[in-house]
Amino acid sequence: TETRTFDSEEEAKKAQKEAEKQGRTVTITRRDDRWEVRFD
């Protein structure tokens, strides 16, 4: 599991799309003013 933090939802969604192309499961969580993206 890898976790990355982004400043914008746009960036988080971009990372999510990339990871899903690779067949990974992605979870996006809102953390205050940041977006946390978890790759499984």
Rank of each mutant, 00 (worst) to 15 (best):
T1F: 15
T1W: 15
T1R: 10
E2R: 11
E2L: 12
E2M: 11
E2K: 11
T3E: 05
T3K: 07
T3S: 08
T3I: 15
R4N: 05
T5E: 08
T5K: 05
F6D: 00
F6G: 00
F6T: 01
D7T: 09
D7Y: 14
D7Q: 08
D7R: 07
D7H: 08
D7K: 08
S8A: 03
S8W: 02
E9N: 02
E9R: 03
E9S: 03
E9W: 15
E10R: 06
E10F: 09
E10H: 07
E10W: 11
E10D: 09
E10I: 08
E10M: 08
E11F: 03
E11V: 03
A12P: 00
A12D: 00
A12R: 00
A12G: 01
A12S: 02
A12Q: 00
K13P: 00
K13E: 08
K14F: 12
K14W: 12
K14Q: 14
K14T: 11
K14P: 00
K14M: 14
A15G: 02
A15S: 05
A15L: 09
Q16V: 14
Q16A: 15
Q16E: 07
Q16H: 05
Q16K: 12
K17N: 10
K17M: 14
K17Q: 13
E18V: 08
E18R: 07
E18K: 06
E18G: 03
A19L: 15
A19I: 07
A19E: 06
E20Q: 11
E20G: 05
E20N: 08
E20Y: 08
K21L: 14
K21P: 02
Q22P: 03
Q22E: 13
G23K: 03
R24V: 11
R24M: 15
R24W: 14
T25E: 06
T25L: 10
V26P: 04
V26T: 09
V26S: 12
V26R: 00
V26D: 00
V26F: 02
V26K: 00
T27V: 11
T27R: 08
T27H: 08
T27Q: 08
T27S: 10
I28G: 00
I28L: 05
T29P: 00
T29F: 06
T29D: 03
T29M: 07
T29N: 07
R30D: 02
R30V: 07
R30N: 06
R30W: 09
R30K: 13
R30E: 04
R31T: 08
R31Y: 08
R31I: 15
D32G: 15
D32L: 08
D33L: 03
D33Y: 03
D33C: 07
R34H: 13
R34Y: 14
R34K: 15
R34I: 13
R34S: 09
R34E: 06
R34M: 13
W35Q: 00
W35L: 02
W35R: 00
W35N: 01
W35Y: 05
W35T: 01
W35K: 00
W35H: 01
E36M: 05
E36W: 04
E36H: 05
E36P: 00
V37D: 01
R38Y: 06
R38P: 01
R38T: 14
R38S: 12
R38L: 09
F39I: 15
F39L: 09
D40I: 13
D40T: 13
